[in-house]
Structure formats: C-alpha cells, structure tokens
Simulated scan of single mutants.
Amino acid sequence: MSGTEHLTVERVGATLVLTLNRPEARNALSLPMLAGLHDGWLEADEDDAIRSVVLTGAGGAFCSGMDLKALHGTGPAADDACRARFKADPDLHWKAMLRHHRPRKPVIAAVEGPCVAGGTEILQGTDIRIAGESAVFGLFEVRRGLFPVGGSTVRLARQIPRTHALEMLLTGRPYTAAEAARIGLIGHVVPDGTALDRALETAALVNANGPLAVEAVKACVHDTAALDEAAGLALELERGLPVLGSADAKEGTRAFAEKRPAVYRRA
C-alpha cells in the first residue's frame, strides 16, 4: 500500500482508508500529503479488490486547507524525491485534490473538526459526506485575498443551491455541521468521534453491492450532470444496459431468489 509521512493508508475489508496525518497542523495540505493522496486514489482505481474509499483526518481534524507557510517557503520541507514528482507532473496536486481526477470507486468523507478552505474543496470531490457535530466548513480564501482554485467556483453551485454557494464563497465565513447539512453540503451529522465508524458502515453497504453496477452508477451520475435530459437518458442506457446483461446481474437476481448473499465476480 502507498503512504507518506503525512498520509496513512489502511485496508479495512474492501475499503481503502486514507487518513490525512498532520494533526499538529490540523492536517494542512503539504507536498507529501498530496503525493500520498494521489497515490491512494490510483491504488483504489487499479485494485479491483477495493470497492470503496474512506477519506478522513487524524487528531480530530479533517483538513485546514493549504499550508500557507509552505506557500512562502517557511513550511515543512519535502524531500527531493517528492519535489521531483511535482516538477515532473505539474498537475499532480490537482489530481490529489480531486480537481483533475475522479476516482472510479465511491469516496466517503468522514469529517471531524475543521474542514475548511482546501478541505472544503477536496470535500466537493467526494461522493458521500459524514461529519461530526463539531465539524466546521467554509471557503476562507477571500479573507486572505486568495481565490479558491480547487474547483469551488465551478462545483459548489452545482452541488448546493446557488445562493448558498455564493454566500459561502463571498463571505468566507465558517459553517457548522448542522448548517452544512441543511444546505446540502454534507449528508449526515453524527456524534463527535463517530464519523469514521459511520463512514465505514456506509462503505460496507456499498461493498456488498455489485461492483460493476456501483461504478457504472457513479460514473453515470457524474457524466450526465452537465447534459440535458434527453442526452443524459441516452447515456444512462449506454452505461446501464451492459450492466443489466452482465453475469453479476444474473448472480444478483439469482441470489435474491435463493435468499443468499450474492457472490459478485466483476463479470
């Protein structure tokens, strides 16, 4: 499994758990963390035994955004090999932050504590979002005279009502977990300290389903988002009919009739 000093990787059943691991800096994004994230997404994409991914943070925090000290050369130094990777692929950090990469498997966010600036931007690349009661969200970039180039000026208004998206982007104010759930940024609010447990429970439900179906459904939802209804429905048939004709679909219906768990073979 991949991983760096700022990103830990663990396998829990068929779920890959990626943990942002700089608790002393509230998991602010560093080059080693971004490199580890990039590798984690690729590992999940390439390993068919992985059915889902959970993204979380260590030490009671999710992510406080980019390390502003690192932007000015005073933050933690990455080693030469890590810096060489970013030089060789100038797009690597955007892939890590899910701006220029969409994982094939469902990604479930388990949020505790701060999930702000770059944290809220990464969040928008996840599929299912669960947060502890004390979690805090927000896009603080304008407060520092910065621009949220992680995708928020495009994605946020497509995920939550436009008025709420613009308020979050233009005021730079913090949002509680309850408010984030009310406007649709997250799906569930749970007691503090239990977001990861709830995320793993949700991942287990996903993992029990047919992998071809799960991945095709996710891809179709994303790929039809910007299409008109007629074009979207046409793409749905293109994506869905092969799944309906698969051996896994036959196994799923047979298992239901026989009142037993299905054994899917990704075929």
Rank of each mutant, 00 (worst) to 15 (best):
R239I: 04
V9K: 04
E5R: 12
L20V: 02
H6Y: 08
S30C: 07
K105S: 04
G40T: 06
P32A: 10
G13R: 05
E179M: 12
V149Q: 15
G184R: 02
M97C: 05
D39W: 06
A226E: 14
R85C: 01
P261M: 09
R51V: 04
L7K: 01
L55K: 03
M97P: 00
D67R: 04
E133G: 03
V9G: 10
R173Q: 11
T15D: 11
L37A: 08
E121G: 13
F62M: 14
A70H: 05
G240R: 04
V214Q: 02
L71A: 14
L7H: 05
Y175S: 11
E43S: 06
L71G: 13
L37R: 07
G73Q: 08
G13M: 10
L196Q: 09
A262G: 14
R144P: 00
L123E: 01
G193A: 06
T120H: 07
P32Y: 06
G65A: 10
A267I: 05
L156N: 03
P242M: 01
V190R: 07
G172F: 08
R155F: 03
A117Q: 08
G145E: 10
I160N: 11
I108K: 02
A35P: 00
R129A: 04
L166I: 01
A249D: 06
G210V: 00
E215R: 12
S2G: 11
P23G: 12
T74K: 12
L169P: 04
E229N: 07
P90A: 04
T15W: 01
N209R: 12
H72S: 15
P106C: 04
E167P: 00
D48P: 05
S246Y: 03
V107T: 06
G172N: 09
T4W: 05
S134E: 11
R144G: 14
D89T: 00
V154P: 00
T8V: 01
N207W: 01
T163G: 11
A81K: 14
G113Y: 13
D48M: 11
A195K: 01
E5M: 08
G132C: 10
A135E: 05
L31Q: 08
H188P: 00
P191L: 08
S246R: 03
M97H: 00
L237C: 11
A135Y: 02
A131W: 07
L16W: 04
G60F: 09
D127W: 00
A208Q: 10
P106R: 03
R144D: 13
L235M: 15
L98K: 08
G73T: 07
G132A: 09
K250N: 11
V54L: 06
I122A: 10
A58L: 03
T253V: 15
V12T: 07
G132F: 14
E236A: 15
V107P: 00
A77S: 09
E141A: 15
E5Y: 09
L205T: 08
F137D: 07
A110I: 07
P103T: 05
A157D: 02
P114V: 13
A255S: 14
A257M: 13
T120C: 13
R198G: 02
S246N: 08
A96C: 05
P261N: 11
T15M: 03
T74I: 14
M1C: 12
A204C: 02
H93D: 15
A177S: 14
Q124F: 01
L156E: 02
R51H: 10
E24F: 06
